[in-house]
Amino acid sequence: MSADFWSGYVSGAAGILIGNPLDLIKTRIQAGNASSPSPSPSDLPGGGQQPLQTQQQQRPSIRGHFDRAGTLVRGTTAPILGYGALNAILFVTYNRTLSLLHTSPPPSSSGTPYSPSDLFKVWCAGAAGGLATFVVSAPTELVKCRAQVSRGPTTSSWAIAREAWRAEGVRGLYYGGGITSVRDAVGYGFYFLSYEWSKQALSSPEDTDREATLKVLLCGGLAGVITWASVFPLDVVKTRVQTQLLNTSEQQRPLLRPQTGSLPPDSTRRLSTMEIARQAYQKEGAGVFFRGLGICSVRAFVVNAVQWAVYEWMMQLLQPT
């Protein structure tokens, strides 16, 4: 395997281990009522069942997101395995696309394979890398989000993956894949663009090793924040699309088979991406698409600062001198 493959894999796994507690809070905030305890049928008006995604929004406190020690690492199994592979595919595709676009000067002293000056090509290469990660990111995101919003004490990533596979096969694992691929293409385009732009603006040939490392951390952190700010509304909708089956199973499964016509005809069907977005806007306003952006920005800065530092360091170790 190439140096950028293993550098991407290790940096991706490191980022998940560091950022999972904050990512768990972000996902539960985005998911809305999927993160709230489900009401019993007797709690609902007339003892009936509540239609999908019509429950009154509840916002649990941060303490509520960490109800047990195991919560801190909930949903990490799939991302550690999946995001390492995703990051490897991302960096390999990005670097190879830059080569195809004829943007390939000699390796820089920091170990990165390219330091391109055409930022539009950088964005295009980043978007190509984001699209290439679809095969890994879609099922990984689905399993992670459902594991993080689940209130079951023994729910594991593997159990959720098996349940999705058993219910719908491969299609079940790629549910919400369309909006995931759009989010990744746009987001990673800005990810690499902002990193290269800030690194070129801040770096200097006179930098010491310590100064160069600090600037990599800063540029990586800024790239993470800019990326999430550019795609956060898409990510909110993606999270709600991928967790709505959990809402259906926990909030809408009737204790007895209902009589014909006792529930609205569309109360148990899955909503499309556009329906999810429209319903969220109508019920919670435009602010819902930026709910959790603060905690996400903190996580993005820390995680991506570490990821880029690990990537650059691994490239120095693995690239031939």
Rank of each mutant, 00 (worst) to 15 (best):
A3Q: 13
D4S: 14
W6R: 09
W6G: 06
I16R: 02
L17F: 11
L24N: 10
R28S: 07
I29P: 00
S36V: 13
P37R: 14
P41A: 12
P41M: 08
L44N: 13
L52K: 11
L52R: 11
L52P: 02
Q56K: 15
H65C: 06
R68P: 01
A69K: 02
V73I: 14
T76Y: 04
T77C: 07
I80V: 15
L81I: 15
G82I: 12
A88D: 08
I89H: 05
Y114Q: 15
A127V: 03
G129D: 04
G130L: 09
A132V: 06
A138C: 12
E141N: 14
V143L: 11
C145W: 02
R151P: 00
S156M: 06
A164N: 08
W165H: 14
E168N: 14
R171V: 12
T180V: 13
G187N: 02
S194T: 07
E196P: 00
L202M: 13
E206P: 01
T213E: 13
T213Y: 08
K215R: 15
L217N: 07
G220C: 04
G221Q: 01
A223Q: 02
A229D: 00
L234I: 08
L245R: 15
N247M: 05
P254Q: 02
L255V: 09
G261R: 08
S272C: 04
S272N: 04
M274Y: 09
I276W: 05
L293A: 04
L293F: 03
C296A: 03
F301N: 01
F301G: 00
V302F: 04
V303M: 05
V303W: 00
A309C: 09
Y311N: 14
L317Q: 15
L317R: 15
